[in-house]
Design a protein around this nucleic acid. Structure first.
Lengths: 229, 229
DNA sequence: TGCCGTGATCTGTGATCACACTTAGGCTCG
DNA sequence: CGAGCCTAAGTGTGATCACAGATCACGGCA
């Protein structure tokens, strides 16, 4: 939620914030499977602190709906239902599509350069004989958020980060299981269309390309993924 | 963030959750002025608990950007800058506008009845010789969220609640200071257009009416409000 | 009279302890 | 040999204590 301006991070944020970032990254990276249960004390032990920072981190993630607390008061990674996945996808297309439109209007040269760089990195990784999935996913994420940041609306970026936090587990988990189909997904094509539309200042084109990209990856997840009914 | 299904609230949520709800309501209602500082211990004393629940509530509100923690580690209600206010307004028009479009597609008879009921309540309150501002604002909020809920996208409603949480303080604070201009704002007209478009299934019309409503109230705040430069 | 230093107090943060509750395992009894 | 109870370990939640840092006001010195 607060990854903006992470540059100047001098050193000591509060332990709770560090725990939040750590858990958040593991969640987005798909290191925690949906349905997996978490324990405050185990978590704290892993962080080398008391339960307090872990408690705060979990609280915030629960507020973001990136974790859920069962009636038993047990904490776990939410299991994504097919219907809520589709709902999230529709919201993503709307919100991220708007961001793409705005980005096309405001795009600065630096933004375009960054976007093209991430695009190249993703294409290179995905077309390699031995694709590094993790690096590809990171390049994909960097590309998307470079676009969103270019819209110049920080609160919109925060909203989108919240959405990615929720789909992160299921998305990255499934990507990991299927190595080769990443290249067949055709994400490179959508990315190319997106970059071209942005460079041309074509807001509708950018939105369409991004929507197609999101829809394609959602389809991919729906077919290979094990989403709860 | 979790005001949906508040009906079944049997009794005992955790103290932290209760504290969060309480603080959140005070924030949305404008009971806390922007820039006002908060103290965990004072807050806890007001709640009749220890600092722990207050701490959790504040943590979550900070995560929602409804509160902010200064470099001094002091906690206060954020002072809204004019530029961030305009940014939030643009995001609101995009996100809430999308919700209105969806609502026009999916609208159920019950939804329309609820919307018309809140619309009538707002118009009645605002055209009265002695308008009750608080009741008018509540009717306005109920009307808006009845529309958003009709879109059938709970995660979108949660996002919008986060946005309202941030503009709540400045919005309700300014409304309180200017009693009579509420009627002149013409919100009733926008609401009427909105309800008509929704009833006709006109998505674009609903979006336009809602955008006009948001823009008008934003203009009102900008002129009478004391937003930081 | 004006200004600076200094101590008391209040801030959030983290650790530790206490408690109600759930859950899983082992033991006893049929 | 199997099933049921019952204890013990583990859960999140809340309270209390400890601590570093910031704030502010009062008092002494120039």
């Amino acid at each position: 939620m607060e990854s903006i301006a992470r540059i100047g991070r001098v050193a000591h944020a509060t332990l709770g914030a560090q725990a939040y970032e750590a858990l958040r990254d593991r969640l987005i990276a798909g290191a925690l499977a949906p349905g997996e249960r978490l324990s405050l004390r185990t978590l704290a032990e892993g962080l080398g602190t008391s339960v307090m920072p872990a408690r705060e981190a979990v609280s915030r993630l629960v507020a973001d709906e990136a974790l859920e607390v069962l009636p038993n008061r047990a904490v776990r990674v939410p299991v994504m239902t097919l219907s809520t996945f589709r709902e999230l996808t529709r919201v993503r297309i709307a919100v991220e599509g708007f961001a793409a439109t705005e980005a096309a209007r405001r795009l600065a040269p630096d933004d375009l350069a960054a976007i093209r760089s991430h695009d190249a990195a993703f294409r290179h990784e995905v077309l390699a004989p031995e694709p590094d999935l993790e690096r590809a996913m990171r390049a994909n994420r960097d590309l998307h958020f470079a676009v969103y940041r270019a819209a110049g609306l920080p609160s919109l970026v925060a909203i989108i980060e919240g959405l990615w936090l929720r789909i992160g587990p299921v998305l990255n988990l499934d990507m990991r299981s299927s190595r080769r189909r990443v290249a067949e997904g055709g994400a490179q094509v959508h990315h190319a269309h997106l970059a071209a539309a942005l460079a041309a200042g074509d807001g509708d084109g950018a939105r369409a390309a991004l929507a197609a990209d999101i829809a394609a990856s959602a389809d991919f997840i729906e077919t290979t993924g094990r989403l709860a009914p």
